[in-house]
Design a protein around this nucleic acid. Structure first.
Lengths: 118, 118
DNA sequence: GGAATACTGAACCATATGGTTCAGTATTAG
DNA sequence: CTAATACTGAACCATATGGTTCAGTATTCC
């Protein structure tokens, strides 16, 4: 079996797969915000927004701090380094695939070896 | 309301949020593979593997071609450009936050020290 | 033709999202 | 103390994942 487990990437790519959450990151890049502020900006109930923030927080992309009644959300310190690293490494894979097309064709012919033409 | 919709990023970040699917991309970077080949390598039923491949395909990350009985999977030509672009743009946001942190802290300390707004 | 191979689809199950409402709790303002 | 504000948690609903099994269909091999 092959193990490619990476809880951080699992959680953070999942967190980034929603447009609202990408918008929240965008917004927090312009300054800290409360749950209420984010909920208003994204036209959503407080409860709904809190769930999004919880998902971002679990992924380490957002940090929150409650002072009095107000929970303030900011971008996490972790940043997007792990995600960028994976993406960049695999961009090269994608590009290498088109560079190394001959090898791939050979591999294909060896594996399939059915001479299927059309 | 704010619109941050981007079906491509939705689908591809979601596709990348699973370790098995990241492994499949890894594997396809080393050469094309059949559903059966991938299913064996990742210890999974054909049906299960086909679902993963379908999710990668829907995101444009993988392309498949059926010749005879065999469906061959390869990396999609689209690559990871859109994902890389989003990540890089927002890495800067994250870093800008912490670059500006000194300023923010100074500002806060100044306000506290001066006892702003009695 | 008949059997093995490779995939496919439907159905099922458990869990997670993405959202809601409703009923609280804690904090701040008067 | 009272009231408003800001959040929180439980419960609910629909849909998507992540996996399975079981029953096909299409191809290839003998």
């Amino acid at each position: 079996m092959v193990q490619y487990s990476s809880p951080i990437l699992d959680l953070s790519f999942a967190a980034l797969s929603d447009a609202t959450r990408r918008g929240i990151i965008d917004q927090l890049g312009r300054g800290a915000a409360s749950i209420t502020g984010l909920a208003e900006r994204f036209q959503m109930t407080l409860t709904g927004m809190k769930k999004h923030v919880a998902i971002l927080e679990r992924a380490g992309l957002v940090v929150t701090h409650k002072a009095g009644r107000v929970r303030t959300c900011t971008l996490g310190e972790r940043g997007l380094a792990a995600e960028a690293e994976w993406i960049e490494a695999h961009r090269m894979l994608f590009e290498a695939r088109f560079g190394a097309l001959d090898d791939i064709i050979n591999e294909l012919q060896r594996e399939v070896r059915d001479g299927s033409a059309g």
